[in-house]
């Protein structure tokens, strides 16, 4: 019987291939196919969950990821973006369902590499430099974690959690966040958040219990405070949505690493909230709803911590 890992690699890759075969000017067919694949993908996920092939956490992560990407698939008719979204999503899903931490890291690196490549194509030399720095940053932390799994030292815990933290935009572990999202098209921002954050959350759930939970709690609280200050200083509306997410993600990271699964749920809601902000950027009334939701989530996270 086909394994879920193979399925998530085959299904979206086939979708990407079929979409790329549609002629460039035939946006109608591409749109119909995109909707069809999206529905089929949701049904597949439901079936896999119903047959207990994937567990609840994996299902929630994959479903949130697909839900966050609906806007790109249904509304936009960008030829390259449609194809590349499926490709990146397949690697992201493979990382979430990977049978080992090392395999998950390899898929996660591949996913971020492709994503940064897409970002590189969206801008000039400034984006090129950002993508270059980010590729090397992710390579360094992923490789360090990959080899750290092979060894058995207590202090390596901090290296093991770095790839996960960097992907959920934990302020101290993601120096790339500010540059990557600067002048980035909204679709690419959504693509980054929707595909990378679930991978980071999945990597964090695989991590062992922290050797010093107090230190982790202090770092998370300090990071959240730092992100809150940046949020107040930030002028760009688009960047503010990301920084708002950073406040919530840093608090939820501490919960997830202490094996409190409620943190994962709240972080995913925060992710959808930020993506909603980005998508409905021109609607000021929706922002009140966004900030209200974020406040409730932050309050819940702070209370649980």
């Amino acid at each position: 019987m086909i394994q879920p890992l193979e399925l998530v690699l085959l299904f979206p890759l086939s979708a990407a291939l079929l979409l790329s075969l549609v002629p460039r000017d035939d946006s109608r067919t591409r749109h119909s196919l995109g909707v069809l694949f999206q529905v089929a993908w949701f049904i597949t996920l439901l079936y896999l969950y119903k047959t207990r092939t994937i567990n609840l956490e994996e299902f929630i992560l994959l479903a949130t990821q697909s839900a966050a990407l609906i806007w790109i698939r249904f509304k936009k008719n960008d030829y390259l973006l449609q194809t590349i979204t499926w490709l990146i999503m397949s690697l992201s899903a493979a990382s979430i369902l990977a049978i080992s931490f090392q395999l998950a890291l390899l898929f996660a690196f591949c996913q971020v590499l492709l994503l940064l490549f897409a970002i590189l194509q969206t801008g000039g030399l400034y984006k090129g430099r950002t993508a270059y720095e980010s590729i090397l940053f992710f390579l360094s932390i992923d490789l360090a974690a990959f080899f750290a799994v092979m060894l058995n030292y207590e202090w390596l815990y901090w290296i093991l959690i770095l790839p996960g933290l960097a992907r959920i935009l934990f302020p101290l572990a993601s120096p790339h966040a500010k540059n990557i999202f600067f002048n980035c098209p909204t679709e690419v921002m959504i693509l980054f958040l929707a595909t990378t954050v679930p991978v980071g959350l999945s990597l964090l759930t695989h991590a062992p219990l922290p050797p010093y939970p107090e230190i982790l709690g202090t770092i998370a609280a300090a990071s959240a405070l730092f992100a809150a200050v940046v949020f107040l200083m930030e002028k760009s509306r688009r960047q503010r949505s990301v920084v708002l997410f950073m406040i919530q993600s840093s608090l939820s990271a501490a919960l997830i690493l202490n094996a409190q699964i409620f943190g994962l749920w709240l972080c995913l809601i925060a992710l959808l909230n930020s993506i909603l902000w980005l998508y409905l950027l021109e609607w000021p009334r929706v922002r009140i709803f966004n900030i209200l939701t974020a406040t409730i989530i932050i309050f819940c996270l702070a209370y649980l911590s």
């Binding site: 490549f117 030399l125 090129g128 590729i135 090397l136 490789l143 080899f147």
Partner: peptide
């Protein structure tokens, strides 16, 4: 040796990533 391998790969990727940026970004 593991740390050495990690450093060697990252150092080697510096010029290659830069080359990729030149080839696709400019």
């Amino acid at each position: 040796i593991l740390a050495l391998i990690g450093i060697a790969i990252v150092l080697g990727m510096f010029p290659i990533a830069r080359l990729a940026v030149f080839m696709f970004g400019k």
